[in-house]
Amino acid sequence: MGLVTQETNKDVWAYINSIENISKREDAKTLVNMMQEITKCEPKIWGDHFIIGFDKYSYKRKGGKEEFEWFRTGFAPRKTKLTLYLTMDIAQEQDLLDALGKCKHGRGCLYINKLADVDLIVLRKLIEKCYNPSKE
């Protein structure tokens, strides 16, 4: 059984420009530019829930034989918050999290109400670490 969320050919900028909330739209543009600069990859829409992902890699689930593709880093501009998907255990970066500002996090996700709530330099460092874990 394959993953439901897969890379699509949907137009990233058409989607971003369709976001009604002006602040969320501007935050999405900022994140696309930042992630594109870090990854050197074009943004792609993944799935029907409009996750904007950058780059991709293949992996197998524990004990599984089937290979899956997933984006290396990305985000989803949701109605109430921005969800950033960072392919690492964010809790390992407590110093950066403490300096980031107002946000919540799960194992590989950051939940930010708006970019104005966080330090963009610290956010960039987190994205860089997730994209290139060897970079200190």
Rank of each mutant, 00 (worst) to 15 (best):
W46T: 08
Y57Q: 04
L3F: 05
L3Q: 11
D89I: 08
T39Y: 12
D98W: 13
W70I: 06
N113Q: 15
K62Y: 01
I90N: 05
F54A: 04
A99H: 11
C109H: 14
K135N: 14
V4A: 00
K60A: 00
G64H: 00
M88Y: 09
I127M: 03
A14I: 10
G53Q: 12
D27C: 06
L115M: 11
I127F: 06
F71M: 14
L115N: 07
K40A: 07
T30M: 04
K44F: 05
V32Y: 02
K104R: 08
C41M: 13
N17C: 02
I45V: 09
A28I: 02
W70K: 06
E42R: 12
Q92V: 08
K65Q: 06
K129D: 08
F71V: 10
I22F: 02
T5D: 05
D119P: 13
F50P: 04
D48W: 05
I127W: 02
C130Q: 05
A76R: 05
I127V: 07
L97N: 08
E66M: 03
D89H: 14
T80S: 08
Y15E: 00
Y57V: 01
Y111A: 15
V12I: 12
I38S: 12
N33D: 14
H105Y: 13
W70R: 02
Y15F: 04
V32M: 04
D55T: 03
L96W: 08
A116L: 07
Y111N: 15
K29F: 05
K81N: 09
K125C: 03
N33E: 15
Q36F: 04
S23Q: 01
L126P: 08
E93Q: 10
D55A: 10
N33F: 13
W13Q: 08
L86Q: 06
K56Y: 15
N9C: 10
L100C: 13
R61S: 03
L110R: 03
I112Y: 06
C109Y: 11
K40G: 09
M35Y: 14
K125L: 00
M35I: 15
C130K: 06
D117P: 15
A99D: 11
N113Y: 13
Q6V: 12
D95P: 07
E26D: 09
Q94S: 15
Q94G: 12
K40E: 06
K81A: 04
E26S: 02
L31K: 03
Y15N: 04
E42M: 03
N113S: 15
K114S: 10
C109T: 11
G101M: 12
A99S: 11
V122T: 13
D11L: 04
E128K: 13
T83K: 02
S18G: 03
D98T: 14
N33P: 10
L82I: 09
Y85S: 09
L86A: 14
E93G: 09
G53I: 12
F50G: 05
I38W: 13
S23V: 02
H49S: 05
